[in-house]
Computed example of a mutant assay.
Amino acid sequence: MNKTWQEAKQVQPQIMRMLQNSLVKKRVAHAYLFEGEKGIGKHEVSHVFAKSLLCEAPIAGYEPCEECRNCKRIMSGNHPDVHYIERDGLSIKKEQIKQLQEEFSKKSVEANRKIYMIADADKMSVGAANSLLKFLEEPSDDTVAILMTEQVQRILPTIISRCQVLTFQPLSPENVKQKLIEHNLQPQIASVISQITQNVEEGLALSHDEWFVQAQKIVVKLYEVLKQNRMKALLFLQTDWFSHFKEREQLDKGLDLLLLIYKDLLYIQLDKRNFVVFQNQEEELASHALQLSQRRLADCMGTILDTKRKLSSNTNPQLLMEQLVLNLQEGS
């Protein structure tokens, strides 16, 4: 949670640029609504922005110094003028907003501003939402609200209209990878998962999912038998593949993993080995990469993508995979 301005900028450059402009031009809004999917930096940016607003010696007029009393108290979560509200059970209650209003009727204790953050703002009860609306309708000059949501469509339009809405973009694979490594995942696993999902929470769940661990091994094995002959590859589908990839969603993930292998082959050919995802198989991949033309690789990737597209229709998954194997094996 305790990110610096520069770290937050690497994750959400556009959002940080907008906040920087508002700070430098002294046009800070009374209320912000940070919206976007889970795990893309809304909470981290909220705290960095709060530090900027209350910092005693901001760098260049916007970047928190990280050293003053206000910055340190926000980092430790005990600044008396920064209030954080989250769900009480399944929702944010009316009483929580009323307590906030009472607190904000008092003079700031240590800073020239009071800041409140509301996580999961879409989970407010009707009473809480109406109370907040009244609060937003009569903003004081020294108050800044930061609302956060994954489902902006569930927030009252009248609340949205009183906020500056900032839409957070999905994380890049590199950002997802770094966040997963911060959660103690091995770089190899983090590399693979970061190419499968842009959601850090989903990525962490995948890392502990035994099905996904086995899926990676089966996909690598399929690639290996594809290099031998078509009968072995077709047999492998029957003995190993179909028993593991039973649902269409599972099969789609399997195809994503297979596509990554062929991308790795291309990266090796282009001498961009730092982009290789299946690092544990890099030497084997390098050997095979020498035997394939870039055009053949492009054809293989196109075939996998076409299979993914057909999978979303009602095409028989088993027939799709058998045809894919034949197309990939041909000329391999």
Rank of each mutant, 00 (worst) to 15 (best):
R73D: 08
I97Y: 00
L166M: 12
M148F: 09
C65D: 05
D142H: 15
D122W: 12
R87P: 06
A119S: 14
A111W: 02
E95D: 15
S105I: 09
A119R: 13
L147N: 05
S140A: 14
P139M: 01
I85A: 06
S91R: 11
K94D: 00
Q169I: 07
T149C: 09
N78W: 11
Y116T: 01
E110M: 10
V152P: 09
E110W: 00
S91G: 08
V126E: 15
Q101I: 12
D141W: 00
Q101Y: 00
L100I: 07
E138Y: 00
V152W: 04
L133A: 03
D120P: 09
Q96F: 10
E102Y: 10
N78I: 11
K114W: 03
H83T: 13
V126F: 11
S91Q: 14
M124L: 14
V126N: 13
R113D: 03
C65Y: 07
K123D: 15
M75Q: 14
L100R: 07
Q96V: 08
L90C: 06
I160V: 15
S125I: 03
L156A: 11
E150L: 11
C65A: 07
I118E: 03
I97N: 00
E102K: 11
E138D: 02
K106L: 15
Q164N: 01
M124H: 09
C163W: 07
L166W: 09
K107M: 09
P157T: 13
I85D: 07
P80R: 02
K134Y: 00
T158V: 10
K114T: 01
R69P: 01
F168A: 04
R69L: 14
L166Q: 06
S105P: 05
L166S: 07
M148D: 06
Q101H: 06
S91M: 12
